[in-house]
Simulated assay, not measured.
Amino acid sequence: MINEAALLESKTLRDSTLERTEALDRVKALSLLPDGMHVTTAMVATYFEVAETVINNLLSRHRQELASNGLRVLRGSDLREFQELNLSFSSGGYPQRRSSLALWSRRAVLNAAMLLRDSEVARQVREYLLDMEYLARTQPVDNSARADRVSLDDHIDERIAHVLGKTVVPMFNALIETSGEHRRELIALRDDIENVERKLCWHHRRISGLEGEAPVDAVRASIKAMTWQAFERHVADLLRRDGCTEVVVRQARSDRGIDVTACMPDGRTVAVQCKNREGRSSVPSADMQKFAGAARTISPVDVALFVATSNFSSEAQAIADLSGIITVNRDELEAWSAGVRLKALR
């Protein structure tokens, strides 16, 4: 098992946990700049409850590692453009006249948590990461499903689809976010790769069907066995698979109906309500009203998804249609879980 000292000393081990940016909000709410993606050095210091000089020293010692995880230093025209786009913050958060500004991504802030030795908040973040790593390692593995029957070609298809969805597509999303001149070409290439991924997923399901399995039944059984916490994490993983970044699973009583938040590759914000309703026929209108109030009034977002393991009552669907909320019922959830990309995220 990874221990805290190893995280502090080993960059390789730190890199292996950097996808779990939800750890930051699980320990303490991280305030972001108006762009919804970055924080300043002063804001990082406030989060970790240390002096700003401590963070500056950390930046100096580990600049290359932090830069590889999203740290940017703006100067000249880039700094002026950023200030113009974030006037509400710049007028009260930092002086207009300055030569440079360090912007930290959530990933870079998580990186800092694994480097700060004398911050109690950073220590709690590391503890959360270690707990999640322990749970992942102790989760039982099901080796019963056709281990001796799966063909080599099918296994390769499955692995390639996994790599495309988990590595290549997110890489293109990051390039698209920062590119200007070649943005259109990158989007076209990403779409081509996603088509290949979908075809490989289809091929895998077809082979499974020929071998006597019922993939939809397997997906349905897997979802049915999930606790509500596991179901929220499952939806978060689907968002990441479809290219969303900054995915945070709240799992708190004060979520006001919003269970998962994320950011789409084009910058739009996403809020998700996850409802695991085992043994119940439909989502009632009261649940939809609560989520509509949270997603459209209390914490407005660009895309609001209500994902359920059941269907929606006619009243609930009517409220969703009026509020601009996208509903994902049981059948759509099963298709999404089986590899079909959700239309709302395209």
Rank of each mutant, 00 (worst) to 15 (best):
E9Y: 03
D15K: 14
V39Y: 03
M43I: 08
Y47A: 01
V50F: 02
I55A: 07
L58H: 01
L59F: 09
G76Q: 08
E81I: 07
N86D: 08
S88L: 07
G92R: 15
S99L: 11
L101Y: 11
L103G: 02
A108E: 00
E120H: 14
V121W: 04
L135D: 12
P140K: 05
D142M: 05
A145D: 09
R146W: 09
R146D: 09
D148T: 13
V150H: 08
V150C: 04
H155Y: 11
I160D: 02
I160G: 05
H162E: 11
V163Q: 12
L175I: 10
H182Q: 13
R183N: 10
L189K: 13
D191C: 10
D192I: 09
L200K: 00
C201L: 15
K224Y: 13
W228L: 05
A230I: 07
V235W: 01
R240C: 06
V249W: 03
V249C: 09
R256P: 00
R256G: 03
R268Q: 10
T269R: 12
V270D: 00
C274H: 07
R277I: 10
F306Y: 13
V307H: 01
T309M: 01
R330I: 05
R330W: 06
L333K: 00
E334G: 01
A335R: 15
S337N: 12
